[in-house]
Design a protein around this nucleic acid. Structure first.
Lengths: 369, 369
DNA sequence: GCTTGTACTTGAAACGCATCAAAGGGGCCG
DNA sequence: CGGCCCCTTTGATGCGTTTCAAGTACAAGC
């Protein structure tokens, strides 16, 4: 268990300390035989470079940190996936921390990453980043994901408002009269979705809208609870359209409604947000608005790279993904050929990597709509 | 952007270097006024401790590393969640790395974590850990998750074989004659599930069994592909029971079968593995066997803590979760009151934390079974 | 044989912090 | 007033690397 250090390797191989270091970092500078000898010694001794010492001596290492509010959220995972692939492409490592829906923890991990001499840090913040103590005086490049900052800084965000608008337009097209929005609107992103819904509905004062908080975790169980509550209302107080601010929530709502004998989409239509793959890969898929999470993660890393390479201080630079109109228009369930809709999913990996300006898209498989 | 260091704080506050260090690490040793003064200076200057230097000077920091094969896999997330909660409980940080189904990357991150002076490292390995170069001569406590090691070392694993057995018994109970197992059996855990299925079926030579590889990623799209292929077979070559080694796979299979006009569960029954919440929270839930991922993560951290506190060299110590019989017996779809089954889900958080010896459980909501 | 150049190799100096033995200061008792 | 002890603060030392100016060995050119 005693740790082997670089000096042990050097002694054992009969070379100097600096040479071993070169073998690790600039192998081209060494005579092939020396390199071979050193590598053999390294393996024989089981030497592992001490990253702390490396970082301390050599400045930043090639790695990024990513702080996520929650891991079991499909959207965050898409971000992580996009960020990961892009980071690897540039030869960087990606370390992920789970803030577990906790402000304090989020801040904690943010500071941790900054102090670890990461080359850059990304956050998908729960609240506005302007709130963040760690936001000011940042010693490393930082990029905010899925949120809009007012302070100078970099961010890349999906247009959550647009998502809300898309959903609202969907509801209007379906002739909704009473919409219930389910979810904890306290989360910044969800707030924006709600805002988008409200804005789109401003021209339709006849449509009643109601927002129900679903508890801190936005789980399927929360959705189930709200769904039950909705089902038990007298028919005339019951909405004809339910929006889950999260696919998981919407899923729970559908579950409860069906259990209580409410026809979906016959009596109540249900739609979600997130584009969680499972939500539309099952046999009875959920309608959902998919923000381009993968793309957001990718772009985040690109912004980080940009800052690193220019060594410029963080100027204001925002990328907004998905602010344009949706590309797949909502259509009636009956009009849809399921096959056609599954195909884009099969090609998902390829397409999200290719298109640089993916829009938020209403994926309508219509089963509950 | 110039980094503030501890000496800057010391100078600015008019105290010595060591005092600032104490303010950070042993605040109780300082006079309250001094502490206050230093803290104010720290905030004013925006000082962030350099973690690398800290770790180098002070030995290991209180943080764990977790290497996961894939993030979009529900089971891995449950592990991450359990590990996270337990780690925080002990005041440790948890950093997660995504190996992206890549041997090399897995090894890379493992070494990275070990070199970072983490207090401990956990992996959910893709292949047998005995394979791992980094496995030997480990300078920090390590725990393997969801896998069985033959070499001395610590691991905590669900009994994947038992899961396979449960599924097989489910199939037998349903009177299956021809079973198709879908998934990349090359993954160790999936191999064991397949093994369990085979073992359970040994006494039923009349039941035909077939294993179909679903490609490297085990995605819903892969499942859809296999499902289509199955649907197109002549009726007498078509299985009457399909097992997805992953919920996502099973989900894709159901999707394809339904699309092609095959009745589920009328003509073909489908079940999955993983206990992915979305798989059984929708209105038409999938039958799945749920290994206790949360518990595995929790136990993993506990094993790490044990090693740290005893400072003992790694002896052989294995925890096996879920080797006993299932607690929720498979029942026919018609017999099930949906409400009852949703309730345990609602209580999931509480229950997984309470029970220390959770079993792999067949959660049968029966819709496709 | 001497110089110049080339190709490697060396080792000392920093990196920013935690630690700890030692010093300082103040109160208490004799 | 001196001695003692306790509480607080100090600053030199070392953690394992990287880096880089300086060194060595050897070959080619004169």
């Amino acid at each position: 268990m005693a740790k082997v250090k670089i000096s042990d390797v050097a002694r054992e191989a009969g070379v100097s300390l600096g040479t071993v270091s070169n073998a690790l970092n600039h192998p081209e500078k060494l005579r092939p035989e020396t390199l071979k000898l050193i590598n053999e010694t390294i393996n024989r001794l089981g030497y592992l470079p001490n990253q702390s010492a490396r970082q301390l001596a050599g400045g930043a290492t090639k790695s990024f940190g990513l702080v996520l509010p929650r891991l079991d959220h499909g959207f965050s995972l898409q971000i992580a996936s996009g960020a990961h692939n892009e980071a690897r492409k540039h030869g960087y490592d990606l370390l992920i921390a789970n803030a577990d829906n906790d402000d304090i923890l989020e801040d904690h991990y943010l500071r941790y990453f900054m102090g670890t001499q990461m080359s850059g840090v990304m956050v998908q913040p729960m609240a506005s980043p302007d709130w963040h103590p760690a936001m000011t005086k940042m010693p490393v490049p930082i990029v905010h994901l899925d949120i809009h900052c007012s302070e100078p800084g970099y961010y890349v965000a999906a247009d959550n408002e647009a998502q809300g608008r898309i959903i609202a337009e969907l509801a209007i097209a379906r002739g909704a009269h009473h919409i219930v929005v389910v979810g904890r609107a306290a989360f910044m992103q969800l707030t924006l979705r709600v805002l988008g819904i409200h804005k789109a509905l401003a021209l339709h004062p006849d449509i009643k809208i109601e927002v129900i908080d679903a508890g801190e975790w936005n789980t399927a169980a929360d959705g189930y609870g709200i769904g039950s509550q909705i089902a038990e209302r007298p028919a005339d107080e019951r909405p004809d359209f339910v929006v889950g601010l999260t696919d998981v929530l919407a899923s729970g709502v559908v579950s409860a409604l069906v259990d209580k004998g409410i026809a979906v989409p016959g009596q109540v239509r249900v739609a979600g947000c997130d584009g969680n793959p499972l939500a539309w890969s099952g046999s009875v898929p959920l309608t959902t608005v998919a923000p381009p999470g993968y793309e957001i993660g990718r772009k985040g890393v690109q912004l980080l790279m940009e800052q690193i390479e220019n060594k410029a201080p963080a100027k204001i630079k925002h990328i907004r993904v998905g602010s344009a109109a949706r590309t797949v228009t909502a259509v009636a369930a009956e009009d849809i050929n399921r096959q056609e809709l599954v195909r884009p999913f099969l090609l998902e990996r390829a397409s999200t990597q290719a298109s640089s300006q993916t829009d938020a898209t209403a994926i309508n498989l219509g089963a509950y709509l």
